[in-house]
Design a protein around this nucleic acid. Structure first.
Lengths: 344, 344
DNA sequence: TTGTACGCGTTATCAA
DNA sequence: TTGATAACGCGTACAA
């Protein structure tokens, strides 16, 4: 069944296509009555404009795209809601694009920019280590949200909005140290990681050092490559190994809340308890840390603020008010039931 | 900066646009060397075809779309992965479209169908109560996945793949009854719900009846409209009310796992414990039910199978092997630590 | 094997 | 306030 087009509508109304187009797009130069008449015919015939044709013709649409790598992350859900709200408030429309783990987000972005005539792009998640010439193909402004600074780039070449992963991670480990823990294990990203996993690990190292503790490689758990990263399962498996290694520790810092949940489970299964035998701390501030039993000590990222600021920066970029920006938000250490003083 | 087009490439290569098009789309009628040469030029100039133009021109693309209402649901994440895999296996491409809570998924579908020349559509989540004439505007086959039968439609008018929400819910409540519970509370959808929330509630009622128990309206908790549906927070708030109402119960059946987690938290905060004071059961089979402390008894939906079958049905629909189908998968009662015999 | 020319459905330009 | 018409960038008959 051939779809009905703008031409069909024009014929049915006895007007030119231009007029129909005007009616659809709320153009000023059209009388109220012809517009009403046209809209009525459109409704009756269920005419829906073809977006491909619109995008093709339109020189610039007011749409911005959010590319997400790793949609699994519950952390992003709240951000998306804020994006949606903020973008609508600015009368822009909003496209959410999932980027597969084995897809290159920049390539997706380049394609999308042409297809949808984007005004701006937000990148969420992922490592973002890209060749420069690729990045230069992006002609619209973009913001890296909750993605740490990327080594190898000049700060003026891109914009970011995030927390200081190093500092916040330091804060947490320092808190554990001050609590009296001297054997603090960590679950972090694989060696290759250059993004937040690395930064949080560095914070851990520095905090240990500043507290006069030596780094014990045996207490550094790395996420499994073959299991979904930052997942509960990964935390579970790595903690099991840590526990079975025989290397003693009294506290465990997981670089994400989901990892922390998995860690708790592993500890329970070994017949031990949290926090009596092991203190466990997470990072991100997911809802589950509040609902878990025991509730989990974590670093709460100000998700809403980060999302809002991301959009704000993007608009400033679009309107050329700025050329780049690196906004850093403070995160909050939330002490809950999963961490206490060491018993041994 | 004006984007580079296929014409530019043709000129640079000294060939016609057709030839370039052939190179891009792997058409047979082109010599290997010219193709290689063209591809090289394309690479060097970072030429990316404009998708809008392609979609506009293409009569039919091999793409299918998955529309999700309520992307928050972690339940869908695993399904999406399977969709992705299965669709790629059939050499189709795959679009994920998030549908806002206040958006009409059918309207989104209609628009998308035209824009992308879809071959088929999968609807995930939502209530799916739509006027018939709207549904008829969809000219491509579609499948409702994990969405229960919708009253008001003839079974041959649409296709579904899901579990039998009524039966599985019955199974869970029956299990609780057999355990000896006689005061079983439920957290379910609001009265208005016509979808899974309703079906699961009906299963609850029937199981009570068959076990000689009377329905106590005071033990029926309804999700709050102003809080995200099926969320931990909703379960938490509703359970608090239930607890404070003074109406005694020994078991609580939450119609989703997230609700169950929230319920457990509320119980802990009241100074009681799970399962000693209250047995708690969920529904869906999310990972968190395994990782929670105590682990939560649930009904595990065979997510992967459902997703696979959804795609299979959709392809059969596309290839006109069938006109409609209603596949129902059995779900599994997984008994964990959160449910025991009543202590009172 | 290659190239020319037209059309996909829409919006912008310009003239009426 | 309207309408004819030229793009937008690509794929594909059809001709060469």
């Amino acid at each position: 069944m051939a779809s009905i087009t703008i031409i069909d509508i024009a014929k049915m109304c006895g007007v030119g296509v231009t007029t129909v187009s005007r009616a659809i797009n709320n153009h000023p130069d059209i009388s109220e009555e012809t517009k009403a008449m046209i809209m009525k015919v459109i409704k009756e015939n269920h005419y829906v404009p073809n977006n491909s044709a619109r995008n093709l013709k339109r020189s610039a649409s007011k749409t911005i795209a959010v590319l997400i790598k790793g949609i699994t992350n519950p952390f992003f859900n709240r951000m998306i809601k804020v994006f949606d709200k903020e973008i609508q408030r600015k009368k822009y429309s909003f496209i959410l694009q999932r980027v597969d783990d084995n897809q290159d987000e920049i390539e997706v972005a380049i394609e999308l920019e042409k297809e949808k005539r984007l005004k701006g792009i937000v990148f969420l998640g992922g490592n973002f280590s890209h060749a420069k010439d690729k990045l230069e193909q992006l002609t619209v402004p973009f913001v890296l949200s909750t993605i740490g600074m990327t080594p190898g780039y000049e700060p003026h070449e891109y914009s970011t909005v995030s927390v200081d992963d190093f500092k916040e991670s330091y804060k947490m480990v320092d808190y554990l140290c001050k609590l009296g823990h001297r054997k603090i294990a960590i679950i972090t990203a694989s060696m290759a990681d250059v993004s937040i996993g690395r930064l949080r690990y560095e914070g851990y190292k520095q905090a240990l050092e500043d507290n006069g503790l030596e780094l014990n490689e045996k207490l550094v758990g790395r996420m499994k490559e073959n299991i979904e990263s930052y997942s509960m399962e990964n935390g579970y498996v790595v903690t099991k190994e840590l526990l079975e290694s025989g290397e003693d520790f009294t506290a465990l810092f997981a670089v994400s809340d989901s990892l922390a949940v998995g860690a708790c489970k592993a500890i329970f299964e070994s017949g031990k308890s949290v926090p009596e035998d092991y203190s466990v701390a997470g990072f991100d501030g997911l809802d589950i840390t509040f609902y878990y039993n025991p509730s989990i000590t974590t670093i709460r990222q100000p998700v809403e603020e980060i999302a809002e600021e991301t959009i704000k920066v993007l608009y400033d970029l679009i309107n050329k008010k700025i050329t780049h920006a690196h906004k850093v938000f403070p995160a909050e250490l939330i002490v809950r039931k999963s961490t206490i003083e060491p018993s041994r």
